[in-house]
Nucleic acid binder design. Structure first.
Lengths: 343, 343
DNA sequence: CGTCGTTATGAGTACGTTAACAACTTGAAG
DNA sequence: CTTCAAGTTGTTAACGTACTCATAACGACG
């Protein structure tokens, strides 16, 4: 594309030099007025401000960034905006960014292509970012070997720890322990698991927590079922369990949507929740969609996670340098889908 | 903050000049290699690429943008990321942006402060954006008087038309007509309305469509009910209607979540859906949350809307100049929450 | 009357990039 | 040998900003 003409007849954006010419001062004085510096004569200031208004001056982001080497924006790379986990990540980071007067540069990776950290980093590096955040909802093939770009803060949102990159996530393992302990206290031992797709990192950790909790109590875990996070897949699994497992007394579904489906299936099979079977989920995501939500679940503080992620990606406050792995615990929300096991 | 040292001992980012020095060529040759231009000797190219690798060169976004006056990013301003409407807007725009090899610069406005178009524009204008998209989910106080910034494409996502700004939205008025016609064909005339909060622009248009459809058939609209988009508010409204209106034969809830709540309320009141009362919603948003979703609704093509919004904000293909108001029709999805009215 | 500090302003420079143009090399054709 | 074209590389300028330093005017003070 042809450059804009550099005289003032074209549609080139208005620069400080243009304002300076109109106000009869130097470009530097315009800069001082634009930045509100004190050492400008009041009369001059007003003349410059009038010229700015007149010409419609807006400061050049490129010029400013080039000059002082910062973008005041953080890069965020996700593979699918619509997934609950990603959405809540965006929201949490957006509010942290706003507190730091920062914008978010959002890049959605192709949903079809293979996702690699190197590719994500390469794309983000060419954008106006002071730090890079990568949501890794499924295991990247190059996770082990990945080296972050030197000179730019990088955070991966995942449960896995990495030797050279800070990682932050809600504790998708610990949430299982919270729920399992709750069920154990109610007397349940035969606790079936309905998981998400096995390529999901969150799923892997939630399932591991379920399995470990059982094994710690020397209970043999029954075969876990695999859904796709949707209520329908939870329904199918619930139906299957209702028909094939008469010893089961509780179901742990790896998210609320599948739990909701499972509850519907149990009731359609003539089982009562929670009298016959207790059901728990994760995410606390049903409230807007279901009236009188009674599901016992774990809620994550997504804003806190967003804040942690942001502050490690853009190390202003001296958080720099150290590579850490942060796991933010969830909070058990007990409602009425769980009850004491009756003998 | 102090500038980075300009010699090569500090942590200043690696520039083309640094690479040029290392490879023993001119900085311009580095530029040619970086941009893959053909007129570079193969041997030279390899030497330069090796130096880039060695030093960890990444091109400066600021330098490039300053040079060629484009940012390859579109600004998106929303007031709350988590609301269904905004989420789907982000998703649609993100995929359109990716097709144009563009990033999104996302700014979330304060949820508490008053929202004005002038303020949103002012914030976006200081960021790296080739175009500005503003989601106006509630009426801005300065909508009438708002003037877009000259020299930068601006699109407002709203149903209202504007004389000087292109506006794009899903047709929140037409969706009501689709649903009402469907109910009319089934023989319903006493159709109650459960709306969202009245400050919402979407709500205003959905309600207007309901009212106009009735009045066009000379049916007096009964008092509309006001919810807050949540299933619980739909439940409350449904309960009220079940107890107070024995002539009603159908309910139009302004979104699926409230419709879902209303259905639960009707059933709790001993009414059958759809045999006794037909219920419809809007958005087609229940599938992930509810098993065996049977709700008749309207689905919007949010990716198409995203594409329209994007292409009017960043006028590459000659869409420039003209101010238009685009309303993208939804599609009626008939499931089993509606049935023929029995006398 | 000179020295000094204070205040207001301008000049010069550097940030990293790419377009336009100039310059040089090489090889082939006349 | 001269001329020309093609291929390769370097030089210069410009994009808009803000820091550093210099300059000028002015009053206070010794």
């Amino acid at each position: 594309m042809a450059r804009r003409p550099s005289n003032d007849t074209g549609t080139r954006p208005v620069s400080m030099a243009d304002v300076a010419r109109a106000a009869g001062v130097s470009q530097q004085t315009v800069s001082r007025v634009a930045n509100g510096l004190p050492n400008v004569n009041e009369q001059t200031r007003q003349r410059v401000q009038a010229a700015m208004q007149e010409l419609g001056f807006r400061p050049s982001y490129a010029g400013r960034s080039l000059r002082d080497g910062r973008y005041h924006s953080v890069g965020l790379c996700v593979n699918d905006v619509t997934k609950f986990g990603n959405l809540s990540m965006i929201d949490g980071i957006a509010s942290a960014a706003r507190e730091h007067n920062c914008a978010i540069t959002l890049v959605e990776m192709s949903k079809t292509e293979e996702f690699s950290l190197a590719e994500a980093t390469r794309r983000m590096a060419a954008l106006p970012v002071d730090g890079i955040i990568i949501g890794m909802s499924r295991m990247a093939p190059d996770f082990e070997t990945f080296d972050p770009l030197p000179g730019i803060g990088t955070v991966i949102v995942t449960m896995y720890a990495h030797p050279r990159v800070t990682t932050v996530d809600s504790d998708h393992y610990g949430c299982s322990l919270l729920l399992m302990d709750h069920l154990f206290e109610l007397g349940h031992e035969q606790i079936r698991y309905i998981g998400g797709p096995s390529f999901s990192v969150d799923e892997q950790f939630r399932r591991a927590g379920w399995r470990d909790a059982l094994e710690r109590k020397h209970i043999e875990p029954a075969e876990p079922l695999e859904g796709d996070w949707s209520a329908n897949s939870g329904y199918e699994a619930g139906r299957y369990l209702a028909e094939h497992d008469r010893t089961m007394t509780a179901i742990y579904a790896a998210n609320d949507q599948m739990a909701n489906g499972a509850i519907a299936a149990l009731r359609d099979s003539g089982l009562r929740v929670p009298e016959d079977v207790s059901v728990v989920g994760v995410d606390d995501s049903l409230d807007d969609f279901v009236a009188h939500n009674e599901l016992t679940t774990v809620r994550f503080d997504l804003h806190q996670r967003g804040r942690e992620v942001f502050e490690h990606a853009v190390p202003e406050a001296g958080t720099a340098g150290k590579t850490v792995a942060i796991r933010i615990p969830g909070q058990l929300i007990i409602r009425h889908s769980t009850a004491i096991l009756r003998a």
